[in-house]
Amino acid sequence: MNKPAYSLVPFSDFLHLKELVRLKNQTVRLNDWPIEVKGGIYILCILEGKYEWIIEQKRYVLYPNDVVALCPWQQLGSPTNTLEIGSFAWLKLEVEVFEPSGELRLGAWSAIQENDQKLMGRLMVSHAPMVLNQLKQVNDLLTKIEQELKQAEFAYQTRVNQLLDELLVIIVRQQSQQQNQRRDFPKAFEQLEKMLRDNLDYPWTVEEMATVVGLGSTAFTEKVKAYSGFSPLNYLINIRIAEAMRQLRQTEKSLTDIALDTGFYSSQHFSTTFKKLTGYTPGHYRKRQTGDSS
């Protein structure tokens, strides 16, 4: 493997910070940059040069200040295994839990709220691979983290963890905004809708949905209402009940299982909502559909 220009180890105070590397590569190196799983949350920022890499089976051309953020199971590398001339920096975080379902727990070091961590996980999975253009702050933050580690001044451990949080927040926000920049609300809404469907049992809040689209909650609510005719929560309930209707008629699952699968916290809550929307209780609806054959 490549020899980094310098790397800051040991991180004995930071069990979660596995690598922080700044790499300046002055000659073309063969067989030095294969496509491989990087492990951990892997954040890489290009500093100089131009790189053509394969990230999760797709080809990307990266320029200075472009940032890649990978989930622990995702791959990155050069299609020819070659490391071209240039420089870049990365850090790798080992997190407590990160599953392909999007379930994410960073660990005790992070001050990001539990719900926001979960949302971050879902965003990273659904927008994978995250490739962000022109995000200069990432390099600035990486530099600051390096300095903190080197200087080890008063409370530097706290500072490093804060900077790591900031790094993650900036990346998630940029991802959402990049979406919105395209001015294509229908497209952003389509992606949100897919995320909702894939995580129907998750207790979504309006704020979380707004983050996915890259808007504040007020603007988001207005836009959804204008675009879909529904308020965000009503839209969510609508997809939940539509899925419940399908399961009621096409599966043998119990009402409680269907309720929980479609994001209702109890079968009582499910029944009330279902009746209010469709005029039938779930049980009655299921019977009606399999009983009469008109």
């Binding site: 529904f230 609508n238 997809i239 539509a242 929307l277």
Partner: peptide, 13 residues
């Protein structure tokens, strides 16, 4: 398109 969702949307409208 999902026929159940369309039906629910009819009811909602």
């Amino acid at each position: 398109q999902d026929p159940e969702q369309i039906f629910l949307t009819v009811l909602y409208a």
